[in-house]
């Protein structure tokens, strides 16, 4: 299991590095759309203890998408969980002050896929059509958050941003809509992360 863990950790690192290396120099030249312009690394948020991956920004960083690989080790989650997550985010406002660039609002959505035989993305044949209306391997979620960052020239980063996200996964949303009194603030869990913008 330890070797397993090491492999995953280096996979995460490799993804981050790949995103970093993929950026051609000099930076001011317009890159093709498929070249990532940032890398994200995140703690928690229902997609792993840690998750990381490349991201793409459009329209002056107001629209973003990211592809994250996440992992939760058995020591922290009782099982080995590996996820792939596609995120879409909209950050309509920007405030600049004292060298900081603040995005006070982020609304977004994500869809995560959990790897493994214990979960299904298509309904297995033992069930009739519509037996379960959701898929245990596929987890949609809504996101609400904010971020703040500043340039880090020593690392050649246009911006290093810290962010938080309130994550409302499908089962929390559905249970909240039907049972607001019981679910209450547990509609959300918290994710913290860093984005490195090249």
């Amino acid at each position: 299991m330890a070797a397993h863990g090491g492999l995953r950790a280096s996979l995460l690192a490799a993804l981050l590095l790949a995103a970093r290396e993929a950026r051609p120099e000099p930076a001011h030249e317009a890159s093709p759309w498929y070249v990532p312009d940032h890398a994200a690394m995140q703690l928690a948020g229902a997609i792993g203890f840690l998750s990381a991956g490349p991201g793409w920004s459009f329209r002056d960083d107001t629209v973003e998408t990211a592809l994250l690989v996440g992992w939760a080790p058995p020591a922290l989650a009782g099982e080995d969980f590996v996820t792939f997550t596609l995120k879409g985010q909209w950050r309509p406002f920007r405030l600049d002050a004292a060298g900081w660039s603040v995005r006070p609002l982020m609304v977004g959505a994500m869809l995560s896929y959990t790897v493994g035989d214990d979960y299904f993305a298509g309904l297995p044949s033992r069930y009739d059509r519509g037996y379960y209306w959701f898929r245990t391997a596929l987890r949609p979620a809504l996101l609400l958050g904010a971020s703040a960052g500043r340039p880090v020239e020593a690392l050649n980063l246009r911006l290093m941003e810290g962010y938080f996200e309130l994550v409302a996964t499908d089962y929390r949303l559905v249970q909240f809509v039907r049972n607001p009194a019981t679910v209450n603030v547990e509609l959300f869990t918290l994710a913290l992360g860093v984005k490195l913008r090249f």
């Binding site: 229902a46 203890f49 939760a72 989650a77 009782g78 918290l190």
Partner: peptide, 18 residues
């Protein structure tokens, strides 16, 4: 961070054994 973790604010996976 420890307070957040302690009050269950973090979720690592929907099916985590915690």
């Amino acid at each position: 961070l420890l307070v957040c973790a302690g009050c269950g604010a973090f979720e690592f996976h929907p099916y985590e054994l915690r």
